[in-house]
Design a protein around this nucleic acid. Structure first.
Lengths: 240, 240
DNA sequence: CGGGCATTTGACAACAGTCAAATCACGTGG
DNA sequence: CCACGTGATTTGACTGTTGTCAAATGCCCG
């Protein structure tokens, strides 16, 4: 079975066999987490970099009021911040959403790999840039999109990201997120998300059921979302 | 007059005189922009890295509906993404809010400087991490804070960032943002922001007037915002 | 002294949250 | 195989927040 991290990085830069082998080696010591288990908590001292190999993971923060905001979803192949160790303590937590397999890469391993394999370093910088673009898109969504637009936009994003790593079927893909997790990601309540999902279903755009989404009408969904895939930077300049 | 970029970086890592001189040299060719002038637009091919020396700048995106969302404020000393050139085209625009002086650093200059001055590289990575933390905090604000909390939180953030670069007075600082710019940053309407500002003024927390904010009661403001300055990572681990 | 933009206010409509209850889906143990 | 318990989803009625539209006022700059 292919290593999704290698797969992702080779989509972002040309990797030689030796580059791929180094990445493979660095992520050879994965650990398993159960759903809802924290990988690291706000206030903890940052440890190794995490690389998701299987399952879904999220970054989140809980406010004094007890509400939770999810700031990012990580799918297989996604990694956490390269230089996180420079900070004194985590300003948010990271949690497994589903059962997940996650590799940890120490800072030393990282530095060695990036020094010896500049292609890998370049791919990781690009991945970082794309992640930042995704954060900015979330800010835009939260600030200026209506609830239905926001839901549609997130589904478009997740669909493309899932497709990029070969996790989609025919107009359908696995979305292991409960409605309250979606609510925490989109800044709304679970009740409201439920109503919006119904609306999108009745509009014939998409339909979610236990663990998967069906895109009923991709054109309509994209139109509702005002989705422009440019921010995911799927066409990069290879010769930078 | 001190170069604010040097000032900022030396707060993030120990810089030798030679490091500082290299940074100074790289930003020695600034350019002036008038208020509302775009430095670069969505869809453009990324050019050099920008470093703000004077004035305020923002990243923003305008949606098909014509509404605008600001995703970040850049103050003197702040820089744009290091590796931006890796992407094919900009997924957002960057604009001067006030009259601004901005240096441009080419990718070659950057690479040379970071190779020859690892302290500078380290400081820039840290700055990048802090910027990401700020983006995450914005996502949290937009998703889970009420309008008054959101306003208070942004003011706390901007106050600390301004203080870090010596731009604050006694419980007061220059905030060259119109209410509609604040609205675009906070995802609300100018009308609503106006009402919220009045509310915060009547509560005795803070008061804005043409171009500056007065913090009337810092404790109250922090309490309203639920502000925890940890995410700005002002105490970093120097020995990473 | 105007002109133009920013701020302020009011009345109303639309959107989203709250609370509570009913229903549904799934795994467990009998 | 079925009854049961738990958590997720769905729905309704109501409340509170925020947006919209329109107009008045204030402020800066020529």
């Amino acid at each position: 079975m292919a290593n999704p991290f290698v797969q992702k990085l080779s989509g972002l830069a040309e990797l030689t066999a030796s580059d791929a082998a180094a990445v493979e080696l660095a992520t050879a010591q994965p650990r398993n987490y159960v759903a809802r288990q924290d990988l690291i908590r706000e206030g903890d001292e940052p440890g190794p970099m995490f690389v998701v190999l299987e399952g879904w993971v999220c970054r989140y923060k809980v406010l004094p009021s007890g509400t939770r905001q999810i700031m990012a979803f990580l799918m297989p192949g996604d990694a956490c911040d390269l230089h996180i160790k420079l900070l004194e303590q985590m300003d948010h937590s990271i949690q497994a959403i589903t059962t997940a397999t996650v590799a940890t890469v120490t800072r030393d391993q990282m530095q060695t790999m990036m020094r010896d394999h500049p292609n890998v370093a370049s791919a990781m910088y690009t991945a970082q840039l794309v992640d930042e673009g995704i954060m900015r898109a979330w800010i835009v969504s939260m600030g200026r999109r209506s609830a239905p637009e926001r839901v549609a936009h997130l589904i478009c994003e997740l669909y493309l990201r899932a497709r990029n790593i070969g996790l989609t079927g025919e107009g359908e893909f696995a979305l292991p997120l409960s409605q309250s997790v979606l609510a925490d990601a989109l800044g709304m309540t679970a009740v409201h998300i439920n109503r919006v999902l119904k609306e999108l279903r009745l509009a014939g755009a998409m339909s979610v059921k236990r663990g998967s989404v069906t895109i009923l009408d991709a054109t309509k969904l994209v139109q509702i979302a005002g989705f422009d895939e440019n921010y995911l930077h799927r066409r990069l300049r290879r010769a930078a």
